[in-house]
Amino acid sequence: MSELTEVIRRTFSLETWEVILPAIGDTLYMTSLSTLLMAVLGLILGTALFVTRPDGLRPVRVFYALFGAVINALRSLPSMVIIILTLPLAKLIIGRSIGPGAVIIALALTCIPMFARMVEGSFLEVPRGKLEAAKSIGARNWELVLKVALPEALPGLIRNFTIAVIAVISVTALAGFFGGGGLGDVAVRFGYNRFLTHMMVAAVLALIVIVELVQLGGDAWAKHIVRKRHL
């Protein structure tokens, strides 16, 4: 039997997936918790950016400038560096610096700044006139954000969110290097360190399928809303 068919056979063998399946579970666990953190904090921070911009609803120049600088600084650091920097932090907060739980904070930290900018950007896409019209009605700032900017920006926001989730997944894989567990961990420990090519292939396949599903889901969600609104 050739080497290639042997790799293919072993890629889809039971003992490979006995390792991969739990890793998928870990990846999904890390991804969903990090995504949740990212969504909540990213939405809050992105809204804060949108509101405090110099041309925003309630400009706070100092805040916007400082905060923007911090976000840009975080964004310019490679994810790997952020993970290394935050693992001690994880130890402080949850008492350990390895395992899926530990990397969640690192994951969230790398992706929150990106998603916050995405939220700001999506809100900026809403035509000013719509906000003005709502202002002319006497709407308060929180109503302008929650009842105008957010719902009007929703399709774009969902598309950005999809991209952000996929970024989380890819950083999750990277976090495997640092004892985070999950598919990245499998790819590195078995595939790279022990030259078990079939493990690497299986882990990559699983990642591709997960990313593809997220993308399909996000697209369908955004499209559903666009259709419903007849845009």
Partner: peptide, 13 residues
């Protein structure tokens, strides 16, 4: 004070 606009500015949502 009601106001109307050239571009209507309705909420598409």
């Amino acid at each position: 004070i009601g106001m109307i606009f050239q571009q209507f500015n309705l909420l598409e949502a």
